[in-house]
Nucleic acid binder design. Structure first.
Lengths: 207, 207
DNA sequence: AGCCGCATAGACAGACCTGTATATATTTGA
DNA sequence: TCAAATATATACAGGTCTGTCTATGCGGCT
């Protein structure tokens, strides 16, 4: 009996596994296993067994495990950016409010008992510079570059003296929140870091 | 028989590999491979081959791969805490100076081109709650608990209204620095986060 | 009806994994 | 010096890994 994924699957969410098309069934099963256990410790055979699909069907949709891993990471990235966009584009928010909305958005997910850290940062832990899986590494690199870009676009309207410093600080507080929530849950982490971010932005604005 | 502690590394650093005793040779080779590539992607056979040791010798010193992994993580933890202790116990430092000394200490290592993130956080990415390697998971859990304890002990003398919040903020900035340096190097990360920490402590002190 | 595309089922190859066994050599220390 | 402890070299067992192959079933479309 397989457990339902806690990860957000926009168009997939809610449907039972066997109501899904094979490709989605595979990706959903793999995402759940990869996130819960780690990528390298989950084999193709297990994903095939738990998604109830034939091996040939798997290899028709994903020519290699690396392809599946890259799809997994791209999917996680898309979900995460969609969540960020929704939160920060809320109407009526001030410019600093938009930055702080990141923390409001992650607070819930990071408190979930199924939370295991940032899936992409954990992917980087397994597929660093010396791995030879270019598609996977490129996906990871794009994620971090785009996240930086995204936060920079939120900071820009504040017209700070040193915007790049603020971007680094906010990003660090976000990434730090992920690691902390994974390793030492239950300390009001996001609340503390939201307050830190607020103070840092206030101070930067008054310079 | 006086067995050399595995946590002692002073006499290991600097010597060429084949001048070391087998156990140290194995641990050093494994540490290098685990850190560069990830733990699960490096097999025993490769560690044995690169450390120039016989398989029987390996299994005499490390009854299982999990034992080796735990030794690796304990060794990393010891090095890191020793570095922290050295930096924060520097004479002449104020109480806040001790906290900020953490950032001064990590700045260099995080800029190194060989830096690949925190070895223990990366270990957690591979050996989370659902792995069945109790020794490894216990080592990781101890690390995070002790790191929290350590920072709390530095914050305590400041006598803040809300010390736990400051602890979380400092820890987050540290962990965030590690992730950032790993994923987006070259942005003056530690400098920015040291300034953030300073501001946060100043503000907390004036409450 | 009949065909085509997709899914299933499962065997199989070849590489790699952890861990053990056997037999030989080398170091060490009493 | 000589025996015990330790290291070496290598073969092997049994499992798991990714990826391929063959053969079969089934549903939709013309």
């Amino acid at each position: 009996m397989q457990r339902r994924s806690e990860l957000v699957f926009a168009d997939v969410d809610g449907k039972s596994l066997d109501a899904l098309a094979p490709r989605e069934r595979i990706l959903k099963t793999a995402s759940d296993l990869f996130y819960r256990l780690s990528i390298n410790s989950v084999g193709i055979d297990r994903i095939i067994a738990e998604s109830g699909v034939a091996k040939m069907t798997f290899y028709k949709h994903f020519p290699s495990k690396a392809t599946l891993i890259a799809s997994y990471l791209r999917h996680q990235k898309a979900m995460w950016f969609q969540m960020l966009a929704t939160a920060t584009e809320e109407p009526g928010l001030s410019s600093t409010g938009r930055v702080l909305a990141i923390f409001d958005a992650i607070d819930g997910p990071l408190r979930a008992p199924t939370f295991r850290g940032c899936s992409i940062t954990r992917g980087l832990a397994e597929f660093g510079p010396e791995a030879n899986t270019p598609e996977v590494q490129a996906t990871i690199a794009e994620y971090f570059a785009e996240l930086h870009e995204f936060v920079a676009s939120l900071i820009k309207p504040l017209d700070l003296d040193n915007p790049e410093r603020a971007v680094v600080q906010i990003l660090s507080l976000v990434q730090g929140s992920f690691v902390m929530a994974q390793s030492l849950p239950g300390l009001g982490i996001v609340e503390a870091n939201r307050e830190a971010a607020e103070l840092l932005l206030e101070h930067a604005l008054s310079e």
